[in-house]
Design a binder for these strands. Structure first.
Lengths: 346, 346
DNA sequence: TAACATAGGGACAAAAAATATCCCGGGAGG
DNA sequence: CCTCCCGGGATATTTTTTGTCCCTATGTTA
């Protein structure tokens, strides 16, 4: 397949754009159906008119159904979306970019979803799907899986089909820490993922930023201790990476502390740790859960994060610790190569 | 590969067309280089201007070199031609057409070269190559191979690489019959094919249309008898199919006889036999060699014929006897489906 | 050497296609 | 009932493609 994609790019590079765009349109409709032209043209940055001509084509090709309620992708269109994803991957040269990231940072696996989640929310679905299918590829019954929160992480359980045979898997939140919307909290994600896997789950309720005494008293609770011990023995960790400032705000840190963190050059956050652009830990929230030093002992670490804006954060984290697998998107991946002084397009 | 071609046709058929056209252009330049725009636009039925834009693109893509002497395909262009050929096959849906022909006429194998040899002489090369590679796939040392003449058949030895290990193969002309240009006579082709295979060959010099007495005296010659016995025991027959009128003229039949043959509805000729559109034998030239009744006993029969104009002739022959393999081209294959009341494009 | 054929490429008008903009009637939901 | 969004038609404008004609360079032949 890769050869054919390269061949086609050689003889008709325009085709890449056309195919990518149509794929993008189809995908966006799929995730928002039924949707109208105007709404869609707003989501994608495309003039309504040019979207209309494309849509008309897609309808003629039978990939799309246009109803008074809006547009929906046809049965055939769905099939095309699924098949096309891999093809678009090669068409965009993402395999090449993935290889370069692998080589540069030493990851075992790098998976890049086409698109940029900064621009197109649906790309997060793809990342979730990829993370889920990667997890599935090696997960054994009896494993302990720790997960963190975040909007991207929230897509991981959604991308996982209902499975059986994982009754002895335990999914657990990697860190305490609330203060976020419930649907993107680690605990929620852990529960959802467990449900998909047919596995068990354990929740961890430890607020961020407790004082030392309060922390001690909470972590001495037997139920909490039990969960913490699970976390320490996690076989798999799936986690998001955030931009330092954004995460600090979302976690409700004091403005003075935020200022201090940023002054120290923090650009990335993961597990409640803040990293500067060289991958050094510059600040730690006092919360219970997975300690970053434990990462080395974890069998599989899966980092999931995308969006061009997050590229510096991803880069910082990769410099600190190279995960087993990085699941990202095209926007972040291209930017990452740029930050490393390369040109994504060869 | 087939899936990708179908996918591409589904989501961007215009692009598929562009790829086909560029491939066609590249191929035509390759077989005629160095060639100018005007000459090329005459060969292909394309306006000079539109060819010019395409050519410019191909040059920008580095597949083509434009020199004062004319255009030539670059080294990379050659690679693209080679790799793309199979892909174009699926893109044009030729596999689908081939399957339909197989099913309709019961052939074991149908191979379709892209293009139409009526329009583009170079397509005959492709047919020759396909025939050669098919022959190679099953030929055993010790086999007897009988061949006929014709312009298309002449491409079969040219498409055969020099081989070893076929020292005990004997290639022989299937029918006597001269009156053609030497380079497309069965004897010439037999000799050439034998040379490529590293095999032996035997020639057959029996003119067409001898009187009964002359025929008898010739066929009683020991050397002739020996060749005839080889032919009767042929393991493989590779033969062309011609249009009845054209062949009758080329063989130098009397005008009155030609008229009579055509009156009987003859449309096809093979081995010196003439068939009407229903596949009935309506006339036989009196010549020595393979009798058409012997076809049934031949292990492998390979029919090689192409060009939209020949479709009725091919159809007639297929109705008489379904060969093991039919090697034809796109023009003939599409027309064949049409004649059978189908639509080549589904 | 001069005439000739064929090469690529420039220029420009005509045609076609893509694009922007606006508006209309219709159905769903408040 | 009104309002909002839906698809789709109509039209003017811009951009791209296509058709035509001519020019000059280069290599070949008489």
């Amino acid at each position: 397949m890769e050869e054919i994609a390269n061949l086609l790019k050689k003889i008709a590079p325009e085709m890449a754009h056309v195919v990518e765009q149509r794929f993008e349109i189809l995908k966006n409709i799929y995730y928002n159906q039924p949707i109208g032209r105007r709404a869609l043209s707003a989501i994608m940055s495309l003039s309504e008119r040019s979207l209309r001509t494309e849509v008309k084509r897609l309808e003629e090709l039978g990939l799309l159904e246009i109803e008074p309620k809006g547009m929906r992708v046809s049965r055939e269109g769905e099939a095309v979306i699924n098949c096309l994803e891999n093809f678009v991957y090669f068409m965009k040269g993402l395999n090449f970019i993935a290889d370069r990231i692998k080589e540069r940072f030493g990851c075992e696996e790098v998976i890049i979803a086409p698109g940029d989640s900064d621009v197109d929310e649906t790309v997060k679905n793809l990342m979730g799907k990829e993370a889920a299918s990667y997890l599935r590829s090696f997960l054994k019954n009896g494993d302990i899986v720790a997960v963190t929160g975040g909007t991207t992480m929230a897509q991981v359980p959604k991308g996982m089909p209902k499975l059986e045979g994982f009754e002895d898997v335990v999914v657990v939140a990697a860190r305490g820490g609330l203060g976020e919307k419930v649907e993107i909290q680690a605990n929620t994600i852990a529960a959802e993922l467990a449900e998909r896997l047919g596995a068990r789950y354990r929740l961890l309720y430890v607020p961020d930023n407790l004082g030392p005494e309060a922390m001690e008293s909470i972590t001495s609770e037997p139920r909490i201790r039990e969960v913490l011990s699970l976390i320490k023995n996690a076989d798999v960790v799936i986690h998001g990476i955030g931009r330092a400032e954004e995460m600090a705000r979302r976690r409700g840190l004091d403005e003075s502390i935020i200022e201090e963190i940023l002054k120290k050059g923090a650009v990335a956050e993961a597990f409640g740790y803040y990293f500067d652009s060289e991958g050094r830990v510059v600040f730690t929230t006092t919360s219970a859960g997975l300690s970053i030093a434990d990462l080395k002992n974890v069998r599989k670490v899966i980092s999931v994060a995308g969006g061009a804006k997050k590229a510096p954060a991803i880069r910082a984290f990769l410099k600190y610790h190279c995960p087993t697998a990085l699941i990202t998107d095209e926007g972040a991946a291209r930017k990452l190569i740029e930050l490393e002084g390369g040109n994504p397009d060869e």
